[in-house]
Structure formats: structure tokens, C-alpha cells
Amino acid sequence: MSTARTAGLAPVAPSPAQPRPTRRERAGKLDAAVSPYLYVAPFFLLFALIGLFPLLYTAFVSVHQWHTIGGEGAFVGLKNFADVLHQRFFWVGLRNTVSIFLLSSVPQVITAIFVAAILNANLRTKTFWRMGVLFPYVIAPVAISLIFGRMSAQEYGLVNYVLGNVGIAPVGWHSEPFAAHVAIASMINFRWTGYSALIFLAAMQAIPTELYEAAIVDGASRWRQFWSVTVPQLRPTIILIIIVSTIGGLQVFDEPLLYDQEGYGGNDRQWMTVTMYIYELGWGNQHNFGRAAAAAWLLFLVVVVLALANFAITRRIASADSGPRRKRVP
């Protein structure tokens, strides 16, 4: 920004001979008018290249017959969209995505806040514990998937073995949709809880100590301090984490893909997410880019709807946030 201003002003200064505008002056004016746009242009160019162009090209592909290897075929209008909406597995994929998203986001936010609260307490070897919760985040998702996939094997897996010893019947981790979702969500939670906790921790440390001091003076217990001071102060951070995990949740791919050997989400697509479905349409069994593009656009619309919902909720929370403050004024 500062370079923009000096670049705009510099030519004006050394031209005191005025009246008719010299070429340099005119150049200077042009510079002042155009350069701001040029400075922001890279973002928009990049966005057009890697955001807008793929979006529009996908729309173009989605209204054509398009074989993965064979390429462009006849124009078919909205047939691909109709085909996708009529396939049972599209809806199964949507169900699985939402289910895995909820199972991974809700417990994750709650656990992360508690973990952050513990880390925020006066612990010995603070740095060790704080680095420790980030440890799962460093492990490659592929490795996590392989390990969890083995642990949740149905016959000889660790989890069912332990459950069996406690007298609980073996769980069909690879045959029952809900059990599979829980297993996959726990991989995601394992990986991301520590990361979220650190973000919460940073936010907690920014909470002014006066608030706690005032609470203590008022005789609030630790529990009460947590609920009445810490959590309300964390609101913006909670919103951030929810938005980030919504984006991640709708794109979840690696973990379910690697959950078994076949990688198409189960014999009845028990754990196939929408992104896996797009992958299967385009690169897996169907070799149909047209349908894959249509499914991708449908997913895009779902994301837009959820983003709007997020926006509405966020606004409500934000206004709730300013509520008590107004009360305090009089």
C-alpha cells in the first residue's frame, strides 16, 4: 500500500513548471488511477485461474457427455444432473458426509475447549504438554487411516477384541454405516483436536485477567469462571473453528478412502463421502467426467447453502455477543 502511494505521488513533485499537464503528470494520474487495481490484480488473476475457471469449466463439462479418457462428447443439457440425483449412492454419500461431519466437529470442539482449559492451567513442563497435543497433527493422515483401519478390523481388530473382553458383542466397523462413521470421525478427531485446542489456548490467553479477578471477587467457582468468562470470550474462536471444520468436513476424503483395501467406501457405500463419489464417477468405475462434474456442482451448491446457514448463525451469535454489553451501560 505504501509503495502504491509513493509511486503515485513521486511524479507530481518534480514538476513545478505547471500549467499544461506534462506527459509525466498525465502518466502520474494514470498511475494513481490504475496501480491500485494492478496491485490487487494478482489475487484476482490467481482466483480466476484456480477458482473461477475450474468452476466454469466444470459447469461446461457437466452439461456434456464426457468420458474420462475419451473426452468431450455430445451436449446433453441437465441429463447428468438428473442421473446423479437418481443414483442412490449420491444420497448415501450426502448422508455419510453430514454424519461424519457432525460426529467429527461437535465432539472435537467440545473436547478441544476442555483440553485447552487444562493446558491453560498452571502445569509443570507446559511446553511439553502443549507440543504433545499437536503430535497427532504431525502424523500423515494416510498413516492414521491405516492404523485405525487395522484397529477396527471386525474379526481380529484391537477394538473388537477389547470390547469382547468386556463382554460387548463385536461391532461391525466395516459393515454398519454408523459404526464406520464413528471410526472415521475418530480418525479426524484424533488428528484435529490438538490443533483446535491450541487455537483455543491462544484465544484463552488473550482473555484479560481482570475478568477472572472480578469473577473471583464475586465469589465465582472455577467451573463458574469457565462457563461465564472463558466460554463467552471464546465465541469468535468457536465460530472460526466451526467454519474451518465445516469446510474440512464436507471435503473429507483421505480417511474414508483408506479405511479399507478397496477404497470405494464399502460394499453398500457405508462410508462413501460425496467427494469419494465424485472420484468414483470420474476416475473409478464409471469413467464419466460429465456426471462427476454434475456431482461436483451439486456439492458446491450444498456448500453454498451451508455457508449461508453458517453466516446466519454467526450473525446471531455476534449480536448475542453485543447484547449483555449494552445492558451494562446504564
Binding site: 478390523a153 471386525q154 466395516h174 478397496e262
Partner: peptide, 9 residues
């Protein structure tokens, strides 16, 4: 399931 951890075990 063929080639699954269960099958190998």
C-alpha cells in the same frame, strides 16, 4: 474381505 487385515490374520 479379501486382503483386509482380518483376512491376513
Amino acid at each position: 474381505a479379501g486382503f483386509s487385515p482380518d483376512w491376513v490374520s
